[in-house]
Write a protein that binds this DNA or RNA. Structure first.
Lengths: 137, 137, 137, 137
DNA sequence: GTGGTCTAGACCACA
DNA sequence: GTGGTCTAGACCACA
């Protein structure tokens, strides 16, 4: 089974697919240019309505993560480089926002903020491939 | 206006309220024991149906964040419990999960992971009050 | 403080008073004929609205547990003997209903029914005074 | 009629539904995995507003008794968790509390405590299925 | 088809 | 005054 989806989860199935595919790409488990299963394949594989797969793929395409080439299939885009300037600013704002949420949640379950920081370091240290990007400092 | 809600957002209004109130408490902007506006007050303030406010308050009460005192009003709880035992494990797993999401998202918008880490440090440094909790190291 | 009431509890304060007073009588901590504090005394003692006390006392009087004697005060009734016949049947039905609830709850939290039974035996064994009533067998 | 609800009862209708459904599951009358009627079905069946049914279902889901599968319907959960750790302790305390209430009530209606005990034995003996749980002795 | 969100408004219980 | 329950009905997201 190419993908593992939990139909009982509260996050919609199409969203789970989006998250999982983006995660694989980010971790290098899905290389740029590589081909994704067709909607039909995946639908019968997961025993899920094809419309659900289609919705996930459409959203991924809209985000510029994958691209559909008529008659050939669906592929991971070469590079998703965050654009500079205004777009970058909003992207950073979004990341900051997500981090704030993590801290708020940590507070309410009684986890010290320092532990959150340490946890992040561990995750980054174990991250598969961070191919020579430069910090924008 | 006590709270700012975006009725056009895709996240439900009641969820926005929950998030915002938890954030304020976590940041110390809403002190323990302090009183929240009554459902009717907030409803007329935000021009939102009272049922929507009630739903948010009920969920916050269920989470142990606020408490209702009959006929008197709604108040921020004294203390959010420290993480202990099985609860702590799942809470930490959740935090790790949220952090992973942040890293995945950062990758896709082209933000170096080191920048995410730095951003987190900045947020923690500016966090209003972290009253002497101990890391569990 | 004669009585301990939790204003934060989800069970109404007047109901807590009813439960507690009935429990004390059942356990012999409040003897028949003994005098209860006046509404005013209790209200100022607990810093609670007198109307709330009055409501509890009224309900207890309606149930035949206490009696108000004009100008003298409020007293625990001599004996609350369950009447025979039809009343007894409905009383037994109520008890059976409560026991069923306990078993349902026990099931859902994963407590074996045998443990519930054992727990009940322990409670009965430690019951202060069961003055020679006869089982109706 | 799948469910019997008393709209004149002082216990809210949604609470009656919760109690009844949990009771059926505990007695094995509603098997794990089995499907509950849809909100709309049940609403028109009972001539009750769908929102009221939804509230009951949501609470049951929160308690981990049933689960919603998107677009498919609502189902009884596979297994109710066994009581372990801190949860177990508070669960047992709650059961003890409920039993105490029963004894207090029995006293006041004149039912000997021994009869309560016997009644419980009868209920347990007639309990549909108690599939090999172990007492924690 | 399924459940989730929200409104406008009535009525009730509690303090 | 406070919050809780319920209705009738609209509209939306998901599968």
């Amino acid at each position: 089974m190419w993908l593992r989806i939990d139909s009982r989860s509260s996050t919609p199935m199409y969203q789970q697919m989006i998250d999982e595919i983006k995660a694989r790409i980010a971790k290098g488990a899905l290389a740029p240019q590589s081909r994704l299963p067709s909607i039909r394949e995946l639908a019968s594989d997961l025993m899920i309505n094809p419309n659900t797969i289609a919705k996930a793929y459409q959203e991924l395409e809209r985000e510029g993560v994958i691209e559909v080439i008529r008659g050939r299939g669906t592929f991971v885009c070469r590079e998703q480089e965050g654009a500079g300037g205004a777009v970058a600013a909003s992207a950073r704002a979004q990341v900051r926002d997500m981090l704030t949420r993590v801290l708020v949640e940590a507070h309410h379950v009684g986890i010290p903020l320092a532990d959150v920081s340490r946890e992040l370091e561990v995750l980054i240290a174990g991250w598969p491939e961070e191919r020579g990007r430069y910090s924008d400092e």
